[in-house]
């Protein structure tokens, strides 16, 4: 954390590829945390990770209650109707207690802090999504090549979630 201004720029680029709460929040916490440390942060949402920046979906993400041993819910029970909603509701309540914001607000915090959010062009085409379906704070829709181009300056790390 030198302040002399000559230090090489540090950047974290996070690829958010899944739609589950725990996965999306991992990406959001790391992006926001990077900005808090004075590190540049960019999030690239691809495949199901697009749900986190799709207006209709972003504040209704769910925890995976099936096939998730960490939940300690037997798979058969996890598949019962309403289970996913109930567990997700409970988890969101716990997060609010820790001052962890909902997805939309969290993204606004990150962009207000200078972080950038991008969507993957190929995944957008696949899911028939248009730019206007996305959260208004999305900076741009990029190809993977354009994403890599953003990684060459300074010291950049790419994290896949």
């Amino acid at each position: 954390m030198k302040t002399n201004g000559v230090e090489e720029k540090k950047k974290i680029m996070i690829i958010n590829s899944k739609a589950t709460i725990e996965s999306v929040y991992a990406a959001l916490v790391m992006a926001n945390g990077a900005r808090m440390e004075g590190i540049e942060a960019e999030i690239f949402c691809t495949f199901f990770g697009l749900e986190a920046i799709t207006q209709k979906r972003m504040d209704h993400l769910k925890v995976a209650t099936v096939g998730n041993p960490g939940m300690h819910i037997p798979t058969m029970l996890g598949g019962l109707p309403g289970m996913e909603n109930m567990v997700s509701h409970f988890m969101k309540k716990e997060m609010e207690k820790l001052d962890i914001p909902p997805v939309g607000e969290f993204l606004e915090m990150i962009t207000a802090a200078g972080g950038k959010v991008f969507a993957c062009k190929l995944a957008m085409d696949m899911f028939h999504l248009k730019k206007e379906d996305l959260w208004e704070g999305v900076e741009d829709v990029l190809t993977i090549g354009q994403f890599y181009e953003r990684a060459w300056e300074g010291k950049t790390h790419i994290i896949f979630v």
Partner: peptide, 29 residues
């Protein structure tokens, strides 16, 4: 009260964008 960026943003004193402008590169610290 433990400090978070979110609390600063909701303080009514300063928003998150200005907070980062006032204290660049790691504002909370």
């Amino acid at each position: 009260v433990p400090l978070t960026i979110r609390k600063i943003g909701k303080s009514g004193i300063v928003d998150i964008k200005e907070f980062y402008q006032l204290f660049p590169n790691g504002p909370l610290k």
